[in-house]
Every structure is written in structure tokens, then in C-alpha cells.
């Protein structure tokens, strides 16, 4: 559409108007997002304060902590160590069960333990990769390669840093990057990060990473539907946040603020102390 170049009073074309409206709406959405973020911050701080208070109370009345995470004791170095997998939690797929098997593989190259771990995780990795659009054959290949990496690297699994499912997830993700995206993400670089993890913030990392699967699952279930949608798309469909925005037909800013709120909520829930 041709519009005369008048110095003022130039009529907007419909498209321009649409763009302006969209811009305005985005601005409103962002402002709304900021208010929400502030509310979340307040809730988060309140949660932390409540957590600290309840910890202090437990110390005062000398009650044992009721968290479900493995027992952590301080050795002379001050670094938390898991003494043993949680006794009596040998149900297939549980953290204790997987820890025992990974340790059996790492120490004794136990093939029976590996076969059990394979029976549980390989079909799940295959399903996970298929949800990202890979063919069943490729997905199975990724699952097999990931499990071989699990076998080779089991000795490096450190239960003080991550849950077994988290560790296996990160290995499977890297195999998927190698094999499906034909990109590179070297495991070596990730390995090199480990010693550094023991610096400042180590306590936080350990607490969050060892959060029982149930706690994390609950946190995920409590997300708002539109927040859950972006998180699921990111993990299951192997899509970047900008691809998600295109797919949902949303402005990038909206998707970013959904992600930020989702992560704020997850973090707040995961760090809530025993409820």
C-alpha cells in the first residue's frame, strides 16, 4: 500500500497498527510479568525464611530432619558424602536402587546390575528421544550408546552431585546431541566442571541436585499449564525457546517470561524445606 510521505498526520497502515498493538500488548505482558516476578520473589524469600526458621527450630528441639534425601554426613574435609544408598528402597527405578547398580558397575563391572539398569532406562531413553521426533531406530541407537556410556562412566557417578536419573539424563542428552543433531558437546568439558562444583555454592548445588524425585515431580506438576507447556516442549521436543515461540505463535518476550516464571516457581518449590 502506498502512503503519501506527509510530514504529519500520516495514516497508519493496518499492518503498522497491528504491529503497534502487538508491541503495546507485549509491553503490558512484560509489565504484568514484572509484577508477577516481584510477587514470586516475595513468596520465594518468604519460603526461604520459613525454611531457615524450621531448620533452626529443629536444631533447637533436636528433631531429626524429615527429608527423603540420602543421609549426608560431614567428613573432616567438610564435603558432604553419601554413606550408603537409602536402605529398603530397592524398588526398581528408585534412586537407591539405581545408585546400588551404578556403584556395582563402577566397582565390579557387574553385568547383571547393568542389565537391570538397561531394562529400566534404555526404553525410557528411547521413548524420550522419540518424542523429540527421532525415528524408533535412531532413538534405540541413542539409548544403546547412552547405556554404553553409562557402563564406561559409572565409576565417575557421584551420588553427592546428582540423582542417578539426572546423571543418566545428562548422558542421554549428550548422546542425542552427538547422534541426532550432529553437534558436539564434549563430556570431557562437563567432567572438568566437577572439581569446580566443590567451590562456593556447593552446598546449594548438592541440596538441589539431591532433591528427591518426588519433590521435583510435585514442583513440575504445580506449574501453571502454560509454563508446563514450554518446559515440556523444551525437554521432550528438543526445541529452543525461540523455536517454541514460533511454534506457539507467541512473541519471544512472552515465551521468555513464561520460562523465567516457570523456573522461579520450580526453584521456590524445590528449595522449600520439609512441608
Amino acid at each position: 500500500m502506498v502512503v503519501a510521505a506527509l510530514p504529519y498526520g500520516r495514516p497508519f497502515s493496518c499492518r503498522e497498527q497491528d504491529e503497534r498493538t502487538e508491541h503495546l500488548l507485549e509491553g503490558v505482558a512484560m509489565a504484568h510479568a514484572r509484577v508477577q516476578a516481584a510477587a514470586h520473589d516475595v513468596a520465594f524469600m518468604a519460603g526461604r525464611i520459613a525454611g531457615t526458621l524450621s531448620r533452626t527450630w529443629r536444631k533447637i528441639v533436636n528433631e531429626p530432619s524429615d527429608t527423603a534425601s540420602p543421609t549426608i554426613a560431614s567428613d573432616s574435609g567438610g564435603v558432604g558424602r553419601v554413606i550408603a544408598p537409602v536402605a529398603g528402597s530397592s524398588e526398581a527405578g528408585s534412586d537407591g536402587w539405581a545408585c546400588e547398580r551404578l556403584q556395582a558397575i563402577g566397582r565390579n563391572a557387574d553385568k547383571q546390575a547393568f542389565a537391570e539398569l538397561f531394562a529400566w532406562y534404555a526404553p525410557r531413553i528411547k521413548a524420550f528421544v522419540m518424542r523429540g521426533g527421532a525415528s524408533p531406530d535412531t532413538a534405540q541407537e541413542v539409548a544403546q550408546e547412552a547405556m554404553i556410556s553409562v557402563w564406561r562412566r559409572a565409576a565417575t557417578f557421584d551420588p553427592t552431585i546428582a540423582r542417578p536419573a539426572t546423571w543418566i539424563y545428562s548422558i542421554a542428552r549428550n548422546r542425542r546431541i552427538d547422534m541426532v543433531r550432529r553437534d558436539r558437546r564434549s563430556d570431557a568439558a562437563i567432567e572438568d566442571l566437577k572439581p569446580l562444583q566443590e567451590e562456593v555454592g556447593q552446598a546449594d548445588t548438592a541440596i538441589v541436585a539431591l532433591e528427591s524425585g518426588d519433590r521435583v515431580r510435585e514442583a513440575i506438576e504445580q506449574l501453571a499449564p502454560e509454563q508446563l507447556e514450554v518446559i515440556r516442549k523444551a525437554f521432550f521436543e528438543d526445541k529452543s525457546h525461540s523455536q517454541i515461540a514460533v511454534e506457539l505463535g507467541l512473541p519471544l518476550g512472552t515465551v521468555k517470561s513464561r520460562i523465567r516464571h516457570a523456573l522461579l516457581r520450580l526453584r521456590a518449590r524445590m528449595q522449600e524445606d520439609g512441608r
Binding site: G93, T166, Y169, L193, V216, R232, F235
Partner: peptide
């Protein structure tokens, strides 16, 4: 990530979410 412990802890949270989602999928037979 190598230079920022706090971001590593945020990554650990996200990977924990990945781990839980991995646990939650309906398995595909192998």
C-alpha cells in the same frame, strides 16, 4: 558455568527436571 557457581546450581535444577521427565515417560520396548 565454569566461572559461576550459582549458574551451575541453576543448571543442576534444570537437569534434575530432565531426570524426572526421563523417569516419567512411558517406556518404548527395546
Amino acid at each position: 558455568l565454569e566461572l559461576c557457581a550459582e549458574s551451575r546450581s541453576r543448571l543442576a535444577e534444570l537437569e534434575a527436571v530432565g531426570g524426572v521427565l526421563l523417569d516419567s515417560v512411558a517406556p518404548e520396548a527395546i
